[in-house]
Amino acid sequence: MAAAAVGVSGTMVPKIVQAASKGLKPSVIWLHFQECTGCTESLLRSHHPEIEDLILDLVSLDYHETLFAAAGHQAEAALESAMKANAGKYVLVIEGAIPTKDGGIYCKIGNKTALELAKKCSENAAAIIALGSCASWGGVPSADPNPTGATGAPMVLTDKKVVTLPGCPANPYIFLGTVLQFVTFGTLPALDDKGRPLFAYARTIHEDCPRRPHFDAGRFAQQFGDEGHRQGYCLYKLGCKGPATKASCSTMRFGDVDAWPIGVGHPCFGCTEKAVGFRIPLHETVPIDRPTPPDTYPAVGAKQGKVSPVATGIAGAVAGALLGAGWAASGKLGEKSDEKRKED
């Protein structure tokens, strides 16, 4: 499934396995900053491949605070040695936002700020992947009023190419697909202007939404639990951000259980979009940038143009008044003329 995510055909799978089993397992260094570890948790629950296959067979996970057996100075030493040993070859994964306020003191690991760690670890990285919305653009920690000045890895590592995989949590298959492509071919997927792989972030939720026919037919749930909601109508009016959110959720579900917010009757939250997630209130609707036709049709002779009865009245009154005034005034003329004729 992860191979399918990057768009390689079935015949490529042996090649992936082969490349991975040649002992060329790339070193992965995984940093946790301001976050909830939801992205890791999500990854742990993926099955195609299983996480153990990934970390035992496909990559060499040299530093990961959640999955590490080691702790304290031992762990920090592992990080140092992995960076030294695989300089220029390791993949750096960043999970979590990086606080920048007050010198970045709001997140420290081994007495180093997240800012320092990110900069140091990225120096010799072959590829940098920002996993989840927090690492991609700040996520929850950057929500207003953002007391720690939290921001995403691309904003800190401005001189590096950072692959961002926003999502709260990020879809593990997008991550696996990106990593496997790098492992197999040594390349990164095509990215959009925000560093997101186009294979997963080229289209909006709305474009592939299973509830889309209801949208086109104008059938909307108006409030939670109403008849339309039960019938599975479109959730747009409940605040669904699908039309403004580029993500693969409507085609590639989470954690192999085929459950996702819109699927269970909750509007999309727009978690992948910096401008939407944690910014626009949950139940506020978003504008639709490029709307598509509904499933209704205008008639050939649809009525158009309007006639204001008030304007009609005014125009009639003015025209009448002018004619009347002219008539009346001409009547006066007649009298005067008679006088004058007498004078003459």
């Binding site: 002779g301 009525k303 309007k306 006639v307 304007a311 125009a315």
Partner: peptide, 18 residues
């Protein structure tokens, strides 16, 4: 132009003419 179209000057339109 066709039976579906209608037109009568709007008030501001008349104001300009007046």
């Amino acid at each position: 132009p066709g039976a579906q179209w209608s037109y009568f000057p709007a008030i501001p339109e008349l104001l300009i003419t007046f």
